[in-house]
Design a protein around this nucleic acid. Structure first.
Length: 513
RNA sequence: GGGCCGUUAGCUCAGCUGGUUAGAGCAUCGGCCUUUUAAGCCGGUGGUCCUGGGUUCGAGUCCCAGACGGCCCA
């Protein structure tokens, strides 16, 4: 066993290598039959899914009289031999169709090829569609081609690939054997497609703005830092496209949108991936409440378009996307949800005073609330998050945000402590954030200075002063409302997925050591 | 960052208070089978029990440290 003789490596190899060697041996057999072991192209005229759709309602007799011919291809996911005949399941990643082979129909060489197939091999099949005596839609093969060998064993046929780490690290295996996973990403694409069509129909122009920015603005978050060598310039991966999109509105593009990646150098969780996809859109001559209505229209139509219903499943419950969505002010939400919370009721008066807010923050275990002393707005936002967020399961707009936590929003004319802003929550997650845009350059400069002060006091999330953006505002931003909507979280909601990693093809993972 | 949980064959999982040579199903290998379908029947192969220390006559199992992952909290 431990003897090492020249050329005997295969004999001393561990078991996984046995599985690999068997596959290599099967490939060699195909070559010995004089058959191609690989292919450059294959003229598919019907995918597996198309075969299933096309012949779904056609019974055995009609198929027998018509003998419809198909040329199809896919991955072998099951093999069942039966003497001088055999079956295999061919997958296109969405669904499977059975292929039936008889030695007397395909000939000896093709049948030997069939016998040398391994699970996972890519094959091409020419044959006739028929139904077996149990009614199973099948393709009776006349020709069989090996298109590409699968050199490694695939996960098990019945349970699929369950190990979450492998599913994320080797997404190709997840997709190869778990059609549910494929369906999530198809739906994700459908969501983005629907959003584009919705906005295009309303005159929005899709644009692309910088992902690498000299100043990372437009949101409250820590950025990733990089460097441009030729310009010897520090750059940040964007945390939001906001300030560039509004520059476009200054430039006279009244309706713009962008669907693309943002990057935030923060923790990873079931709701956070360092890179994530946002829709941001801006509409001139509008204010926040116009976008509230637009959002309801977009999401209710979207739910119907991609799931077939305005009621969508969410961990055993149902989300109802029928407009109008619920509406609550931030303060009302805190008061209402704290009533039944064992951590104690918070009264409206508590929210008016700093001491009341600090006490509430303490009770609701906000991390180190003392650091927010002198910032009532920030404290309220923290308390809201701790008290209310998890309760906001049905789509709900939270309205009335403190100016202090909204450096880019327009104040309410009747009370400058508050801005004209909303956030949409669903499934206990924030999924959208919109507001009437601050278009007064002097006020914007003031807000930036306040943020800079916070930054100096150690708040690494505070936004930096962006003089170039203030200058743009000086050329005049028309009254405008804008909104950001998280595509990943929206996809989670519409696919009943409870981790953001389940809706991102390749979520960030620590490299395997 | 903190707490809890997990890591055993290619995959999905058992493995009790430490005690024979670590098991099952699927996959794989050999044989039989021309409408099977989680095909079936007969017979085999396959293990860095995550890693490194420690306790013990004896460790997959207990202890410590670490790696990776999951969930919850922040």
């Amino acid at each position: 066993m431990n003897e090492r003789e020249p050329g005997a490596a295969a004999e001393t190899a561990p078991s996984e290598s046995d599985l690999l060697r068997n596959r290599r041996e099967n490939l060699r057999r195909v070559g010995e039959l004089g058959l191609p072991t690989t292919a450059f192209r294959f003229p598919v005229d019907a995918t597996v899914s198309e075969i299933r759709e096309r012949y779904a309602g056609i019974d055995a007799e009609r198929l027998e009289s018509g003998k419809p011919a198909v040329v199809t291809a896919g991955r072998v996911l099951a093999l069942r031999t039966a003497g001088k005949a055999g079956f295999l399941d061919l997958s296109d990643g969405r669904t499977r169709v059975q292929v039936y082979l008889r030695r007397d129909a395909v000939g000896d060489a093709a049948f030997e090829l069939y016998r040398a197939l391994d699970l996972g091999d890519w094959i091409g099949v020419e044959g006739e569609v028929f139904r077996t005596r149990t009614g199973e839609l099948s393709v009776k093969a006349q020709r069989l081609s090996l298109l590409a060998k699968c050199w490694r064993p695939l996960p098990e046929k019945w349970h699929g690939l369950k190990d979450v780490e492998s599913r994320y690290r080797q997404r190709y295996l997840d997709l190869a054997v778990n059609p549910d996973s494929r369906a999530v990403f198809e739906r994700r694409a459908a969501i983005v497609r629907h959003i584009r069509a919705f906005l295009e129909a309303r005159g929005y122009l899709e644009v692309e703005t910088p992902m690498m920015q000299p100043i990372a603005g437009g949101a409250v978050a820590r950025p990733f830092v990089t460097h441009h060598n030729a310009l010897d310039l520090p750059l940040y991966l964007r945390i939001a496209p906001e300030l560039y999109l509004k520059r476009l509105v200054v430039g006279g593009m009244p309706r713009v949108y962008e669907i693309n990646r943002n990057f935030r150098n923060e923790g990873i969780s079931t709701q956070h991936n360092p890179e994530f996809t946002m829709l941001e859109f801006y509409q001139a001559y509008a204010e926040a409440k116009d976008l509230v209505q637009l959002t309801e229209e977009l999401l209710s139509g979207l739910a119907v378009a991609v799931t077939g219903s305005a009621q969508t499943p969410w961990s055993g419950a149902t989300l109802d996307w029928t407009p109008p969505f619920k509406r609550l002010t931030m303060r009302d939400a805190v008061v209402a949800f704290s009533k039944e919370d064992p951590r104690g009721e918070i009264r409206r008066e508590d929210l008016a005073r700093e001491e009341g807010l600090l006490a509430a923050a303490e009770r609701y275990e906000v991390d180190a609330p003392e650091r927010f002393r002198g910032r009532k707005g920030k404290l309220l936002a923290e308390v809201f998050e701790a008290v209310a967020e998890s309760h906001l399961v049905q789509p709900t707009f939270i309205e009335e945000f403190p100016t202090e936590v909204s450096p880019l929003s327009r104040q309410r004319p009747d009370d400058p402590e508050w801005v004209d802003r909303f956030e949409l929550y669903a499934g206990g997650m924030e999924i959208a954030n919109g507001f009437s845009e601050l278009n007064d350059p002097e006020e914007q400069a003031l807000r930036f200075r306040r943020q800079a002060e916070e930054r100096e006091r150690g708040d690494l999330e505070a936004t930096a002063y962006d003089a170039d953006y203030v200058e743009a505002l000086e050329y005049g931003l028309p009254p405008t409302a804008g909104e950001g909507l998280g595509i990943d979280r929206l996809t989670m909601l519409l696919t009943d997925s409870h981790s953001i990693r389940d809706v991102i093809l390749f979520p960030l993972m620590r490299p395997r050591t």
